[in-house]
Amino acid sequence: MLKMPNLEVHQPDAVKHDTKVSAQDVNVYYGEKHALQNVSVNIPDRSVMAFIGPSGCGKSTFLRCINRMNDTIPIAKVTGKIIIDNQDIYDPSLDVVQLRARVGMVFQKPNPFPKSIYENVAYGPRIHGLSHSKADLDEIVGASLEKAGLWKEVKDRLNDPGTGLSGGQQQRLCIARAIAVNPEVILMDEPCSALDPIATAKIEELIDELRQNYCIIIVTHSMQQAARVSQRTAFFHLGTLVEEGNTTDIFTNPKDQRTQDYITGRFG
C-alpha cells in the first residue's frame, strides 16, 4: 500500500473571501451520456480553486460550463444554475460573448494565434473596444504582458510571431491575452500539462500572484500542483463532486474514502 505523498501544503491566512461563482445542481449531458451530475459548489473570489480527479471525471466539463464553452459542442446540454455576481450565466438575457470577456480561459495546450506577440494580446481589447487610441492599446498590451511575467522576455520582439516562443512562454502569452480583456474569473484547463518543470514553476508562481486580483479556477492532474497553488480543492469522480473544502483539509484529512484513495494514489 502506498503512503500519503509528502505534500507541501502552504495555507495562507484563512480564506474569507466572498463567493464569486456559485454553481447549483449543474448537470451536463453529451447526447445520451450524463457527464456531470448535480454539482453544487461555491467558489470564492481572489483565491485559487483547484479541481482534481481521475481522467474523465467531469472536472474539465464543469470548468467549461463556467464560461459556457460547452455551447460550442452541438450535442452538449447543460441544466442547473451557475451564478456569477448574482447573475445566472445561463439566463437567456445574458450575451455569451460578454460573459466570456468576464470569464477568461487558458487552455491545456498553448494556443497562440498565428499573429505577432503584440497582436495576440491586443486581440481581445480590439474586439471589445477597450482602447481608444494606439497609446491606450500599447498600455494594455504592456501591462498584460507585465502581469503575465512575459514583458521582460518579449519587449524587444513584440512583432515576432507568437508561435515562435517556447511552450512556457506561449502559455504565459495566452494568460496575458486572457488578462488583457480585464476578466474577473480566469479558468485554467490543465495549463501546465504540456510544459516542462521549469516553465511549470513559472506559471505556478504567476497563478499565485494573479490570485490577488482574480478568481482563479484551475483543473489539474497533478496533486502536488493543486496543493501548491490552491486554497480550496474540489475532488471529482465519475461525474460527481465528491468532496470540496480547504486544500489543507482535503489533502491531510479527507472525509470521503474515494478522496483518500485518490490522493494516496490508489487509483487515478
Binding site: 464553452m69 460550442t72 460573448v97 466570456r100 480561459m105 487552455f107 486581440y123 481581445g124 474586439i127 480583456v181
Partner: peptide, 13 residues
C-alpha cells in the same frame, strides 16, 4: 486547429 477557435471564443469573440 479547433484550439485556435476556442482560444478566440474564450476571449469573448
Amino acid at each position: 486547429p479547433q484550439s485556435l477557435r476556442e482560444g478566440s471564443y474564450g476571449l469573448g469573440a
